[in-house]
Design a protein around this nucleic acid. Structure first.
Lengths: 211, 211, 211, 211
DNA sequence: GATGAATGAGGATTCATTCAT
DNA sequence: AATGAATGAATCCTCATTCAT
């Protein structure tokens, strides 16, 4: 259940054992897009780090935009799958749900950055992400919040509560460079991830129901 | 004609009444850097929207990077000033503090995006922002959290708690495009900002001290 | 089609029969750098005269400076090779040595200009030229001068004597525009080159040992 | 007679005691044009080193080209004056003539570089230099050579002999960077200039009449 | 699948020059 | 006489992309 175990199994976040060339390209592109954003990433750099030349990359992806979208889809799809799966299970178990989500981001360290980049830019790919993948989950979450007998959030506050969760989870992973500067630890280290998980769980218990 | 007096009144957040060319450039650059990031913003576009040609811009700023840093400094400096001022007042009054901070981001709608862009990229300008401007504030916040008799966060959790506040506040303003897609409201609308303020205040009361 | 054989024959000094694009670029660049200097030569002009666009040129050379250095190396290397070859032969035969050197500059009409440009500017590429290529030859020359029984130059004068030879040989080819203005002949014409050779030989006999 | 004495008196080569702004500009421009060539020198750099801005420079000179020509004229005119004066004196005294010329270049250390730059480029300003200033002197020199009873140069060789003198004198001063790299002394140091003078005088005696 | 060569569009920046002040 | 601001032209160079091989 802990992230460190999952990492070896899933491997989607690391590019060490990449097999096909397309996968290798996607791995590199994911990392570079996450670190430098879409505009700040050169196709040539992706190609070079993937071990080929830029023209060769066009044998695998129609263009930079298409590659970017493929990266986003590959990154966001399993997240959506995970969460729609979780939603169908016992959604009272917010602890396990939080563990799963945080673990997913921990094993996919570029995902949060990708989502936050796209959210900041408000690019064309944001709508699919938000509408297709995240919205259903959000709906479940809002239902869960409302259904919680301890919760006393008004209906208008629901979205902001959900948004707060998104910010806390995404932020922990996406804004790692800032946190590293501000504090003296790496938010992506295993112990910090565990701490963040326990923090979020305590929030889930107490914070959600202030009284 | 007596511009210097008007400037403070009119110019809060908008770039309509900008007076000097340098200010106009800074205003435009702030908006474009916030919306498209550093790499995604062309000097020529900044110049055009500021009403001059790209070479002319170099009469006011040494280069793109220098302009970017000037934008960041102009944006972050008052934030730091505000918060260091708040820290010296009654720092038990977390409500007023939250109001001030949120209001500042509300009236400087590009600031959160600028900080989050730079945090994501982990660029060279991040260190000054974090070290010089944010770190002192963070120190105060952590002291306040520890001093709170109701608080029972361990010492290691302090940074993560502070980080959570950063994520919630920055996120509300910076990730507006995502929230707009996900929900059907504008986080920057006055009523939503008020709602967010009251939400954060409730968090400050309850969430910080779960038991 | 069998280019590699032809190249040595046809391509001596002229850029007409250049084969590979890189060679064509080098040929044009050599001529333009020689005629206008480094700063006075535009990459776009080199590219245009070589039959391509400026960006295409970057597929062959990393940049203007790299191209310049490649031009210098291609020009100076055979000169050094020639002279180190001559040094190993009977170095009493100063006549043959002078013939070879002058003929080399005659068949590489840009070389003297390139060296003199770089010597005037004192650019970064001058040190390699001087240290690696010319210095060994100079050493030989100074030994030869000292060893000459008729020579009565003091040790301190040796360098100046060598320098005088350099000036006379380089000057004849590099300062052709001045000589054309001053006199009414072309220093690069065959008969003038022959005359210069015989002049230098007479110098070598008489001038070097005045008494 | 020695260069070191003259330098303090004449001062045309140094820019320390420059008086009018125009003179200061000319001094700086002369040095920069000599060191970097016409294309390699920016008007702004000249202006900055002269203590004003580029637009101000246009109050004194019509443009870059005009400034360049003014520099050349100011540099070459006294040289021509000197030499026409020398020609009218006892032109058998080649020793004094050589001393004067070399001293002039020694006290005007940029002059040789300026002439050699312009000769290499073959620019529009070369013709005036060659035709108006140098040609009369050259004519005298050739007459002197022919008239010398010891000389046995053919008529066609005359120009080449004169050219050789030009190369040796200009080269010593203009190609100082190369000589510094090649040998371990500064050609512009007083002792080296004296040595060069004595060398040239010996050449004048012996070399000119090999038999 | 891969690549070297090529390119139009655009990148930031420099340059010589102008002009109102 | 000096300058801040402005600019068209040109600088070197990068970029995403195409295409023949």
């Amino acid at each position: 259940m802990s992230g460190s175990v999952l990492r070896e199994v899933v491997d989607a976040g690391g590019e060490a054992a990449a097999e096909t060339t397309s996968d290798r390209i996607l791995d590199v592109a994911e990392r570079l897009f996450a670190d430098h954003g879409f505009a700040g990433t050169a196709v040539r750099d992706i190609a070079r780090e993937a071990g080929l030349t830029a023209p060769s990359l066009y044998n695998h992806f129609a263009g930079k935009q298409a590659l970017y979208e493929a990266v986003l889809e590959r990154g966001v799809a399993p997240l959506a799958k995970l969460m729609s799966g979780l939603a169908q299970k016992d959604n009272q178990d917010s602890d396990g749900l939080l563990d799963s989500i945080v673990d997913h981001f921990a094993t996919h360290p570029n995902l949060a950055k990708l989502i936050q980049h796209e959210s900041l830019i408000g690019g064309a790919s944001l709508a699919p992400i938000a509408q297709v993948w995240l919205r259903p989950i959000v709906k479940d979450a809002m239902i869960a919040i409302q259904r919680n007998p301890d919760s006393n959030w008004s209906e208008e506050e629901g979205p902001l509560v959900v948004a707060a969760w998104i910010h806390m989870i995404l932020g922990h992973f996406a804004m790692a460079p800032l946190l590293r500067e501000l504090f003296d630890f790496d938010p992506l280290a295993d112990d910090q991830i565990e701490r963040q998980k326990s923090l979020l769980k305590r929030y889930a218990k107490g914070v959600m129901s202030p009284e």
